[in-house]
Amino acid sequence: MEATVVRTGTEGKTWGGGNEPLKASYGKMMMWFFILSDALTFSGFLAAYGFSRFKFIDSWPIADEVFTHFPFLHGVEAPMYYVALMTFILIFSSVTMVLAVDAGHHMKKGKVTFYMFLTILGGLIFVGSQAWEWSTFIKGDYGAVTTKGGNILQFVNTEGERVGLAEIAVPVEGERTEHERNNGIWFDAGQDLPSYSLAEVKAGFIQKEDVLIRTQVLTEDGEKTVLTREESLAALNNDAIGTVEGANLVENEYGHPLFADFFFFITGFHGFHVFSGVIINIIIFFNVIIGTYDRRGSYEMVEKVGLYWHFVDLVWVFVFTFFYLV
């Protein structure tokens, strides 16, 4: 029995062992260090976004002109309103989360359940809104013409209002028709045709005297440069190589393709965090319902997932600023 020394005689002294200087449980501390490392990952992405933006500081897309849609309000210009609403939803779900944590401290199972439920609901609404935002962005708005240098040319009328490709393009005889699956002998489909070809846009542009071209370059007032009618015709005839509608990882009708790349990557990575946060919240929610934490005598698990959930909100505050506001 006395073979191992179980007492060192240093109990109670600083290095005697059993000290918890940070006064936090293992799980909570590890959640904090995970959050710290995840914060550095997000900072890496946002700093990379800043790097690319500084590289093209005089031709970067203006976020207000990109995110102008609101669900069910078709054709209404609503710059940033929907993102602001999404931000509110996320902040509010953070509030219900912290209320659930607080109720957990007082061992009130019913309240924890209710607030967790509201948190999950808020998270789901946010992810859904994000999906809608993505689909609107991918589908595009007005369409643009791509140039040899990998830039885009957009169309505006003399008042500076945007004009879509649909309003300009006129049908041209002898254009390639799309080879669809049902016409092919071996069920082959041809390459997709754009809705409006460059030839159709060029033909329409010559007829529409009041339409001008807007380039990506920002003026000193922070607005996009609008060319004169002669410059517009020259740009369209010399530089244009195709049309683009919407945005993907290669092309972007709103401006620099890097803008779309970072948009998909950063909001996607954040959306993935929200999604996994919702899943973890659901697991904890059911644990609360079946009384796991009641029996354990501590709702600390709610507090730990709460930390993660608040972190997701914290990241969104920064994404919102650097993607939509600045």
């Binding site: 940070l22 006064k23 550095l40 505050v317």
Partner: peptide, 28 residues
């Protein structure tokens, strides 16, 4: 406010708070 009030950093010990915040702020 999110970190201090919602994530309870204001109630954590100085050591934990600084380990998280100073590291992050410096590297970022």
């Amino acid at each position: 406010y999110i970190a201090w009030a919602f994530m309870h950093l204001e109630h954590e010990t100085k050591g934990l708070r600084r380990a998280v915040v100073w590291t992050g702020v410096f590297l970022v």
